[in-house]
Design a protein around this nucleic acid. Sequence first.
DNA 1: AACCCGGGGCC
DNA 2: GGCCCAGGGTT
Length: 380
Amino acid sequence: MSSSESSEQKQYFSTELLSWYRRHKRDLPWRRSRNPYHIWVSEIMLQQTRVDTVIPYFNRFMDKFPTVAALAEAPEDEVLKAWEGLGYYSRARNLQSAVREVQERYGGVVPDTKEEVASLKGVGPYTTGAILSIAYNKPEPAVDGNVMRVLSRYFLIEDDIMKGSTRVSMEKLAQELIPEGAAGDFNQGLMELGALVCTPKSPSCLTCPVMAHCAGRAAGMEESLPVKTKAKPPRPERRYAVVIEGAAEHAGRVLIRQRPAEGLLARLWELPHAAVPTAPAAAEARGEGGDPAAAHAALAAHLAGDGLGLGPVGWLMQAEHTFSHIRWEMDVYTGRLEEASALLLPVPLPPHYRWVNREEMEQYAFPNVFLRILNAYFGR
DNA sequence: AACCCGGGGCC
DNA sequence: GGCCCAGGGTT
């Protein structure tokens, strides 16, 4: 980092920011007490969602699970239900798992040392600092994206904030800035400034309490900081998917299945799909119409693993879904299960499979791409 | 350090 | 529809 910050510039920043925060802080539900459990839950929720969205979730969550003990004892289903709509369900599971540890190991009292807090599941460097400073007023930095944006602008730091080493140096700087005895308010002030004034686009410099000594602003660089490398584009992954149509008592229904409890899109529902085998020469063009023979081979081999036989397939559509790191490019076919041959017995369905029609599918949560396919298939 | 994990809002 | 938004876990 540049490390050309003057002590006057730092002193000014700390004093003015703290004063500004105490005059302008928003009245938020988790700011009405210093209850460490409340602070913790709010920080986990805020990691992924805007304040306005979090508020009703936080209030409902506290009504339902008012204490560490209450959350520790609750069935996981209820916790996930209370989290429904916030996304990132693994963080709800991590939170409850860590809360159970606090209940058992610390008698329900959220610990107040760096080592103990940082060891809790789902609590990394940022959340550790937030809990220690906001709940216990300990002089620990809490550096999130807001804070890195504010600091990189005010001190004109051009280090790439996507690098781990930059976060570490920002933490050092942020810690030096904490005014004596005011860690909680100062850290919240940093984040509040980033959220309300020093915003990612078109920051409101004219109302900023520290504009007078902002090096980024003085250099006309407030819009171009922080420096942040572009994430590399998601790697494409070609897949075959199939809408398996039911017959007889399942006429009008299609076969869906639930994903495993761990990993990508955990526990969501989907259509059966299989990777396109890494093809030799002619793998380039995805075309309308696909390659039914190749698709049948891949899908049939895949479904055989669940004891299901697949009959011939026909072209349906193309569909795609982009994650931060993967891009699914799917060729979608329709097909039916193979007749159960000689014994004339119904093919037993593995427990994570279901037949659903267009009404019944409403009860299951699908990633968007499968929702689009099913909606197209059912003709909406 | 590199990769894995997911979903929403804005323009 | 393209662009931007983040923090923690694992290896």
